[in-house]
Design a protein around this nucleic acid. Structure first.
Length: 502
RNA sequence: GCCCCCAUCGUCUAGAGGACUAGGACACAGGCCUUUCAAGCCUGCGACAGGGGUUCGAAUCCCCUUGGGGGCACCA
């Protein structure tokens, strides 16, 4: 069963934005395809018209592309096993549903939703096992004809056989798994609107698209035997099954929700890939990070390329246990990748983030001279692209900057007078600096402690706060060079005056 | 409630009966470096859920308990 050409798929349903867990499933499939000379197929499972969301599909495609998970067949790419939207395959499903009915593996069920609801209610009240009672499975030929003549709507249900049996199949990650048929019910295959349910559509498509390995989320595990039974009823060669462990909330409680979840400290952690993109994580780090959840390249490496991952990836190397989302590691890893970027690359990625952060257009930001030289200064200080804005915002203020708390101008273990002395000294010395470069500035400021009697730290703190508005900043001398002499002098003077009137 | 799955540091993980004094990473703590903050380097803290077996020998195999997760739709 593994000697078939490798063809794997990611089959999202356009009912929401690309979920971080979905992204991981896609990545694992992609890694497997790439590592085994196989094909990675993208199929859109849009058979639920009630939950369909318009901008979901574009988001999913954009997310996969952002991660670099190019699909070999699917939307916008085509392929010879299409169409790749289930909504365009309806005749195929009805045809195979009819085939099952004709061959005694499925039957038409005319039960109304009201009857089903009442049945469920009764079962709950009697504390019986809930599930369809197979009422329509045993209808006589006459009864069926009557229903048909009346034009009653129906669904097609799979006839689980035997009713009291069980099905065992092999999961490539967990080994043998057995499920009692009583849990499976006579599942609906075709809804009354003529559209297929997941069970029918996925099996038919996986077969027709010649999918060799099904790697999908854990939550399908209990119903996997239904798929196995369906393959058997059709007489088709089943694929290799592998159920990926779910990703839990960062606190380990419950799977990552559909929307937002709480971090240990009560802050929210995004669950959609688009939010991570917006927060300034870079794609290379995200791919590496995702590959480390439920799988590892070996016991000692955390950082590796996609090429290394695809070469090493194997299904039986997947850890079967659910994993809490290691958010802190993502932050760290993103910093690692940012530090490895060359300055020009990082500049290009930073541009839109900083522009938006300070309220400029990208064109305006691109025209400003400050950002490019500032990149090497913040490279090892940021964890995400978005971190750059609070760190560099002061460079893009043209007038005087505001100090939330003038007391910040006074360093620890310093007096207001000390700060005024420091600022006056800088104000007096800096005009002499020529040319205005970080090392001439540094030489100038380093000579000041001698005349003022202040320590270098005490001298630089008021200058730093005066110029950047914060006691945390990029390296000061380089910062002053980028800011320019004029704005530097202006801010020092304003700060000194504030302190005098303080 | 019933069914399925899972179980190594706080977290992500390595480990497929002897190489385990249980390795790596994040986080955390301390130190070095230092113009702030980072980055970097060093050190430290820290786990085989519990109980029974099997075996000369168990983190590794089996059983039970406990805990966690998932599933029981005309959703995927």
């Amino acid at each position: 069963m593994t000697d078939r050409p490798v063809r794997v798929r990611f089959a999202p349903s356009p009912t929401g934005y690309l979920h971080i867990g979905g992204a991981r499933s896609a990545l694992f499939n992609w890694l497997y395809a790439r590592g085994h000379g196989g094909r990675f197929i993208l199929r859109i499972e849009d058979t639920d018209r009630k939950r369909y969301i318009d901008d979901s599909m574009p988001d999913i495609l954009a997310g996969l592309r952002w991660l670099g998970l190019q699909w070999d067949e699917g939307p916008e790419v085509g392929g010879d096993h299409g169409p790749y939207f289930q909504s365009e395959r309806l005749p195929i499903y009805t045809r195979w549903a009819d085939w099952l009915v004709d061959n005694g593996h499925a039957y038409r069920c005319y039960c109304t939703e009201e009857r089903l609801a009442a049945l469920r209610e009764q079962q709950v009240a009697n504390k019986e096992q809930s599930g369809y009672d197979r009422h329509c499975r045993y209808l006589t030929t006459e009864q069926r004809a009557e229903r048909e003549a009346a034009g009653d709507s129906y669904v097609v249900r799979f006839a689980i056989d035997p009713i009291d049996g069980s099905t065992t199949f092999h999961d490539a990650i967990r080994g043998e798994i057995t499920v009692e048929h009583s849990l499976l019910q006579d599942a609906v295959l075709l809804k009354s609107d003529g559209w297929p349910t997941y069970h029918l559509a996925a099996v038919v498509d996986d077969h027709l698209m010649e999918i060799s390995h099904i790697m999908r989320s854990d939550e399908w595990l209990p119903s996997a035997p239904l798929g196995v039974l369906l393959y058997a009823a059709f007489g088709w060669e089943p694929p290799v099954w592998a159920h990926l462990p779910v990703i839990l909330n960062p606190n380990g409680k419950g799977k990552m929700s559909k929307r937002y979840t709480l971090n240990e400290d009560g802050t929210s952690v995004p669950v959609h890939l688009r939010d991570y993109i917006a927060d300034g994580y870079i794609s290379e780090a995200m791919v590496n990070f995702l590959a480390n959840i439920g799988w590892s390249i070996d016991g000692s490496r955390e950082v590796f390329t996609p090429e290394e991952a695809m070469a090493a990836f194997s299904i039986d190397g997947i850890n079967p246990s659910p994993a809490a989302f290691p958010y802190d590691k993502l932050v760290w890893l993103d910093g690692v990748y940012i530090r490895e970027l060359d300055d020009e690359d990082l500049y290009r990625r930073l541009l839109p983030f900083v522009a938006r952060g300070v309220g400029m257009s990208e064109a305006e930001m691109a025209a400003r001279p400050e950002l490019r030289p500032a990149v090497p200064l913040i490279k090892e200080r940021i964890k995400t692209l978005a971190d750059a804005t609070p760190m560099l915002g002061f460079l893009f203020v043209d007038g005087p900057i505001e100090y939330d708390d003038p007391a910040a101008l006074i360093g620890k273990k310093m007096t207001a007078t000390d700060s005024i002395v420091a600022l006056d000294a800088a104000l007096a010395a800096l005009p002499e600096v020529d040319p205005w470069t970080h090392d001439t500035i540094e030489a100038c400021l380093r000579s000041l402690p001698e005349s003022t009697g202040l320590k270098l730290r005490s001298l630089l703190t008021p200058v730093r706060v005066a110029v950047t508005g914060s006691n945390v900043s990029p390296p000061l001398f380089e910062t002053l060079e980028i800011l320019g002499r004029e704005r530097t002098m202006e801010r020092l003077a304003v700060a000194r005056d504030i302190l005098r009137n303080h």
